[in-house]
């Protein structure tokens, strides 16, 4: 059993949880995630480790309520227990000193990009952060990201904060302004990551994406999370979740992420995942 120590609303429909999980906290690295199961009848779902405190033995998860399990989690509070939690899973992000790095997040991807951006700053990279969200209410981690980034640029769908439009427009602007980027990291809805990958490929900028396919065990046992990367089939949970964006087959990923829409589960995450998502994946 894993106790929820704190719960806080950080944005529209997005909650932050601090959870007692000392073994996971000791090992967590940027880019890694946990798989949790709330109760005996629960589904196993993957959630990124957004932060950790090794001394206190806690991890921080940022979860957007998009469906059945995440909504049940949204109804839980400090003092409640999560039945099962396994992690850290996935390969840690490879973070080296490269120069200038653009960290691009869409919606809840901000939670995933934060520990990576922080590590980039720690190893001496110049960090430019670009965030896309549906509206002002959907933004979070602004201050945390501002503290470690040289610049934070925001795009909202409705223009209620920052630039009105797609986060990829902001990236294009940076490139057009002649800012040299040594690396780009993008985390968010699949169409957003795909758009970023297409843009950076044209400019030959190394780009990493953090993928979020459907998972079951998270240990390499089921193959649900398989993705096409270049000529190979990779298991996202043990070979990823980060891959070279220019090698990822996004159309296959997008298709597979809709698998359970047929069986009656529905998604409203387009609204919340931020712009860049054209809604196609969740029709």
């Amino acid at each position: 059993m894993f106790k929820i120590l704190e719960k806080e609303a950080v944005a529209h429909n997005v909650w932050k949880y601090v959870i007692a999980a000392s073994d996971v906290a000791k090992k967590a690295q940027p880019g890694q995630f946990v798989v949790l199961r709330l109760h005996e009848q629960g589904e196993r779902i993957p959630i990124s480790i957004s932060d950790w405190d090794r001394d206190a033995g806690t991890i921080t998860l940022i979860v957007q309520a998009v469906g059945h399990t995440t909504q049940q989690l949204a109804e839980m509070n400090a003092g409640d227990h999560i039945l099962d939690l396994l992690g850290p899973l996935g390969k840690p992000a490879v973070i080296e000193q490269v120069g200038t790095v653009a960290c691009i997040a869409g919606g809840v991807g901000t939670a995933i990009i934060y520990p990576e951006a922080r590590r980039h700053q720690e190893v001496g990279n110049r960090v430019l952060t670009l965030i896309g969200a549906r509206s002002r209410d959907h933004l979070f981690y602004q201050e945390e990201l501002a503290a470690i980034s040289e610049r934070v640029l925001v795009a909202t769908d409705d223009g209620s904060y920052g630039y009105k439009g797609f986060v990829t427009d902001l990236l294009r602007q940076l490139i057009d302004d002649g800012i040299h980027l040594d690396q780009v990291i993008a985390v968010g809805p699949i169409p957003m990551m795909q758009a970023v990958a297409e843009l950076t490929k044209r400019h030959d900028i190394k780009t990493i994406v953090s993928l979020n396919p459907i998972m079951v065990d998270g240990t390499g046992m089921c193959g649900a999370c398989r993705v096409r990367v270049g000529d190979e089939v990779k298991f996202c949970c043990i070979d990823g979740p980060e891959f070279d964006a220019h090698q990822v087959d996004f159309s296959s990923l997008l298709r597979r992420s809709q698998l359970y829409e047929r069986s009656g589960t529905s998604c409203n995450s387009t609204e919340n995942m931020g712009e860049g998502c054209d809604g196609q994946c969740h029709k």
Partner: peptide, 26 residues
């Protein structure tokens, strides 16, 4: 599906009882 995913959903996650359990299977 791999058989492992299919069987895990049914045996470990009891997807045959969906929607009494949360794990679906199509």
């Amino acid at each position: 599906y791999t058989a492992n995913e299919f069987l895990t959903r049914v045996n470990l996650m009891k997807a045959y009882l969906y929607p009494q359990v949360d794990t679906p299977l199509y």
